[in-house]
Design a protein around this nucleic acid. Structure first.
Length: 208
DNA sequence: AGTGCGATTGACT
DNA sequence: GTCAATCGCACTA
């Protein structure tokens, strides 16, 4: 299989500063489309371009912070630009970017990446899945990026191993839809994705 | 201490 | 398209 990350020049990355992140959760979810998430591991750099997000804003009954701070969701309250990682269905880790002020629980779920660096390693982590399936879907994304509870609470805007970056490449038109897989507060269009991008999970369009 | 349930995935008809 | 695996955690008692 062709190894994209070694045949196409990687984009030049610049670390995002916390002050560059939009203060509003929904704005951040839209802003993160086209940005890059980077995990520098002892087996090398893993990175991917964010192509799909979901916002879980303040007061959202589907959000994990809705009933206040607990041990599980404590990282959501660290202030914007931190990682909130949790396990769902006993097997899939989810990576979120926190989005509001310290003490206010809200975040943005990263749902799909276009792999950039470390594709060989991602394939090992994912059991040699095809390129399109490496990080399409939030659980796959976390597995490909080697995200687990170890990364929960990390500051994404500090000089740490897990960070956010911007590039000079252009971002395509952004679509929006209802969120996927929820049972509550399903009506709001809080899912964002880059239109026409093959690495986006689920339907490219959802009404509602 | 017991119970029920997911911000999903992969296997299967 | 359907469906079960799997386990940490919140919730009830």
């Amino acid at each position: 299989m062709k190894r994209l990350g070694e045949t196409i020049p990687l984009p030049r990355l610049r670390r995002l500063r916390r002050t560059e992140l939009p203060v509003d959760t929904v704005e951040l979810a839209r802003y993160l489309i086209g940005k890059v998430v980077v995990h520098d591991t002892d087996d090398g750099r893993l990175s991917g371009r964010i192509v799909e997000t979901e916002a879980y804003p303040v007061g959202d009954s589907a959000g994990h912070a809705f009933r206040g701070e607990t041990r599980r969701n404590a990282s959501l309250f660290l202030g914007r630009g931190h990682a909130y990682v949790y396990l769902t269905y006993g097997s899939s880790f989810m990576l979120n970017v926190t989005s509001e002020a310290v003490g206010v629980g809200a975040g943005v779920l990263l749902r799909a990446l276009e792999p950039l660096a470390g594709i060989d390693q991602m394939q090992r982590l994912r059991g040699a899945a095809g390129l399109l399936d490496l990080a399409r879907g939030p659980g796959r994304l976390a597995q490909a990026m080697r995200i687990d509870f170890t990364q929960d609470g990390l500051d994404l805007c500090a000089a740490g191993p897990l960070w956010l970056a911007t590039t000079q490449s252009k971002t395509g038109a952004i679509g929006e839809s209802v969120r996927i897989g929820l049972t509550r507060n399903v009506d709001r269009k809080l899912r964002f994705y880059e239109r026409g991008n093959s690495y986006v999970s689920g339907p490219k369009r959802l009404s509602g």
